[in-house]
Amino acid sequence: MAGLEIPSWDPETALLIGAILLEAFVLYVGYGGLERLVGPYLMRLIVGGDTSAQ
């Protein structure tokens, strides 16, 4: 493995990196939705009262 290499096509490695890419997209969308859904409630909980946030 030592020495410079031109990357060759390896489907299993591509799938591995693809899985990380997919996870990143899912997490971006999923956590974004979660933030919109429970964010205001969490803010109220954190600042300690209904009078403050939102």
């Binding site: 493995m1 290499e5 990357p7 060759s8 390896d10 490695t13 591509a14 591995l16 990196i17 899985a19 990380i20 996870e23």
Partner: peptide, 17 residues
């Protein structure tokens, strides 16, 4: 870089995920 390391078995999904 991840692809190149992955080809050599250097990327562990059990760590990254």
């Amino acid at each position: 870089g991840s692809y190149l390391y992955g080809q050599g078995g250097g990327v562990n999904l059990g760590i990254v995920a």
